[in-house]
Design a protein around this nucleic acid. Sequence first.
RNA 1: GGAGAGGUGGCAGAGUGGUCGAAUGCGACAGUCUCGAAAACUGCUGUACCUUCACGGGUACCGAGGGUUCGAAUCCCUCCCUCUCCGCCA
Length: 423
Amino acid sequence: MIELSYIRRSPEEVISRLAIKNFDAKPVIDEILAIDEKRRSTQTNLDGILAQLNKASKEIGELYKAGKKAEADALKANTTQWKEDITLLEAETKKIETELHTKAVLLPNMPHSSVPNGKTPEDNEVFHTEGAIPELGENALPHWDLAKKYDIIDFELGVKISGAGFPVYKGKGAKLQRALINYFLDKAHEAGYLEIEPPILINEDSGFGTGQLPDKEGQMYFVGEDKLYLIPTAEVPITNIYRDMVVDASTLPIKNCGYTPCFRREAGSYGKDVRGLNRLHQFDKVEIVQIRMPEESYKALEEMRDYVAGLLRSLNLPFRILKLCGGDMSFASALTFDMEVYSAAQKRWLEVSSVSNFETFQSNRMKLRYKKDKDKPALAHTLNGSALALPRIVASLLENNQDDKGVRIPEVLIPYTKFDYIS
RNA sequence: GGAGAGGUGGCAGAGUGGUCGAAUGCGACAGUCUCGAAAACUGCUGUACCUUCACGGGUACCGAGGGUUCGAAUCCCUCCCUCUCCGCCA
């Protein structure tokens, strides 16, 4: 949520920056400013009457104590009207605040000044490309065929147990998953991230805090009986650890990581994008999260981006880094780098990570602040990134590393898998 | 699922319907002392919003929401959550 004070101070800037996200903010901003105006006058009004009442109450107490009952009763008579006014003004204030909140929540985060213009994924800026694209023979197989050939991932079985998009990993397939998770967690630990194993069901407040609610309500699985949502990413529980907190500046930066399964309904997805491991309802991911002071957050974003690039490099996967254009960015992000690996049999780039700086967008929703010395508490910046999402890594590993004998396991993973070939 | 207890400031923990934003302790911060530190002593220490050029002033907040009252942390109602015991269970 964009800070109201910011909107009030520079509405034109907010409008022009949101235009880069192809969001026409003018009507909403105008409404917000008008409602805010009304809110302030109503509160000033209400506070005045409350002050009168408080003062009178105190006097009545003193008069009673002094035995001046008649005078006290006379004062009491005045309060009736005030109380009526207070009731009305309180209802009014509440209504206005709800209205204001409803409007403010609709605004996406403002993009950083470096965000490229553009509407679609084609407009994203290729920031960096690295690694040789493997030359596969004519009979190279896409990963879903490889998975079947070596009996390591069973999609049909998943359909039987749950439905489409819930694969069953078996044997070396399951071990590969476990190896990747452990490898990613170990690397994150080396990079200074504290490992967290969070709940994977979250309440509504948490969903709101990181921006999934109300914007992406339909994308999360919901357990109605207990009003809990299955997490779409570990970002939600791990960032919400700090909801409603004022952390001391000396504890920053906070660097957390965590492995969780992630659940996404992916309503509306179809076609070749959803083949095999390309798009799933349940998948594994290691996430990294940072809480930073504002002046350091972009340095942290670069650090995270470089960290993820290093992971991909270590797996010998050809990858590219995209700087997302305004139109392709998420609701909450101010600047996002996407990492894509090349999957040589499908001959396409697959997104395996997304690293974002949310600036104060999430912290304002979560009321996550930091306090530096004698300064007033200020909103912290939050960042997160996938490091990494497993399925598409597995897809490209299978496809890119296939040969006549089977599928080669990257060097760095062998200590984890304890085997060097899937055959 | 059954029974009980409880939710108060960064933490611990008092609290009589009025002078309670709230005792006290710890912590944090500043000072005295010291070469320095510890100890001791002294002082200070919440957040949000409104208002003011500013100094300042005002309002709200003791789990959440209602109610009673001139006045509620304190009384009443509803809800939420946590803890303990029992049951069931990984």
